[in-house]
């Protein structure tokens, strides 16, 4: 591979990786706080993609801008979902949580299938085929905007966890549940907010992805798997890890697409997953068990 192509693949991969990272961040926040693995994560990403698709069709709203209202709506969905459906399962065994969320994922995908059909969908943006050029290196414009939007959402999220009292309380609850309950934090509310925040992440990421790629309901399981891979590589429950994992997987996939074939993308990220697990089982940024 020539150097310009190498740089191009690297940059494109990192830009996509930031969006992946945002999606995985949602999974990581939910697991880190609620201790439930959201097996419907990819399905929510696809749901957000359809939301962006519909908004584009109705109002010609750019998916990257639509990511803001979609994230807000997904926060509400997540909050209510945790309160009404997931909360009773928080203390139940893992396999029961799995079945619950898999049931939810089946519902989402098939509802979309019923409404929109199996056809592949995409949006045509005015700048879809434009690119920035630096010397002989070409970078898709849409990817740059998408990555910037993902970065902005991520920054808001980090600020939320660092500077707001609710964010700090959620971090406290994630570290020490009993302690949080003892000092009088409403743990159920914090869980619901966390699930909401997690879904807001995947909602924003999904909307942005609509600008980058074609989409069908059948994409959902592979997105779920992608999010899993990223958070395991980065370290389940670690926010920085989710972003770093997203970048790493983004670059690895871009390289696999450029060097081999696009269908080998998942195999490459999976290979990466095994290597990371073997070298550092808790993930790159995960905390070792005490």
């Amino acid at each position: 591979m020539s150097l310009p192509l190498f740089v191009e693949v690297l940059i494109q991969g990192m830009l996509t990786g930031l969006v992946y990272g945002l999606m995985a961040l949602g999974l990581s926040v939910i697991f880190g706080v609620v201790r439930v693995v959201n097996f419907a994560h990819g399905e929510f990403a696809v749901l957000a993609m359809y939301a962006a698709f519909v908004l584009f069709g109705l109002f010609h709203l750019d998916p990257i801008i639509a990511s803001i209202p979609i994230a807000a709506a997904f926060f509400v969905i997540g909050y209510l979902l945790q309160r009404a459906v997931v909360q009773p399962f928080v203390t139940r065994p893992q396999h029961e949580q799995f079945i619950l969320l898999v049931g939810l994922s089946i519902v989402i995908v098939n509802a979309l299938l019923l409404i929109f059909g199996p056809e592949s969908r995409h949006v045509d943006l005015p700048y879809s085929f434009d690119s920035f050029s630096i010397g002989s290196i070409l970078i898709d414009e849409v990817r740059v905007y998408g990555a910037l939007a993902a970065l902005a959402v991520t920054a808001v999220l980090f600020a939320f966890f660092r500077f707001t009292s609710t964010g700090v309380a959620i971090r406290a609850a994630a570290d020490n549940l009993v302690g949080a309950a003892v000092v009088g934090l409403d743990v159920k509310r914090l869980y619901a907010i966390s699930f909401g925040v997690g879904l807001a992440c995947v909602g924003a990421a999904g909307a942005i992805m609509m600008a980058l790629t074609d989409m069908t309901p059948m994409l959902a399981p592979s997105l779920t798997l992608l999010a899993f891979t990223i958070v395991i590589v980065g370290g389940l429950g670690s926010m920085v890890g989710a972003l770093a994992g997203g970048l790493l997987i983004g670059v690895a996939e871009a390289a696999a697409s450029a060097l081999a074939s696009p269908s080998m993308k998942s195999m490459v990220s999976f290979g990466l997953l095994i290597v990371v697990l073997a070298l550092r089982p808790q993930g790159l940024f995960g905390k070792a068990e005490a």
Binding site: F89, E96, I99, L100, G103, N110, A111, L113, L114
Partner: peptide, 20 residues
């Protein structure tokens, strides 16, 4: 297409909620 799976998904959620 999807109708059966949709109901199946709801059933899964219902069963697991009812029969721990």
């Amino acid at each position: 297409p999807g109708a059966k799976a949709l109901v199946y998904g709801f059933l899964l959620m219902g069963i697991i909620a009812a029969a721990p």
